[in-house]
């Protein structure tokens, strides 16, 4: 599935300063693997040593947090938009 991924500022050094990139995959996990092929090093920033998304990395598929969906197993369709958003601070 061809999808569009929004890249947060701290990771744009890896994507040649591009804020939006095209990727491909049936699930969020596959898209992350594809991003790693295109932009080596990005997976290490997004995922921990076990290959799971770091707990302060928020991923949204069409504005919906994937923790409300099927996490990395969330299925994608053509034209979906993914946002990667670093930790949201706030509150006390």
């Amino acid at each position: 599935m061809a999808v569009m991924v929004r890249i947060p500022t701290p990771l744009q050094k890896l994507t040649g300063e591009k804020a939006e990139v095209q990727s491909d995959g049936k699930t969020v996990g596959e898209v992350i693997a594809d991003l790693e092929r295109q932009f080596p090093g990005i997976q290490d920033r997004l995922c921990d040593a076990q290959g799971k998304l770091r707990r302060f990395v928020n991923v949204y598929v069409n504005e919906e947090d994937i923790r409300f969906l099927k996490q990395e197993g969330t299925e994608l369709k053509n034209g979906d938009e993914l946002s990667i958003i670093p930790a949201i601070a706030g509150g006390a």
């Binding site: 701290p10 920033r45 770091r54 302060f56 670093p86 930790a87 601070a89």
Partner: peptide, 10 residues
């Protein structure tokens, strides 16, 4: 600053 620019931890 409030977030680690490597792993996004606080």
């Amino acid at each position: 600053i409030y977030v680690c620019d490597y792993c996004f931890g606080s």
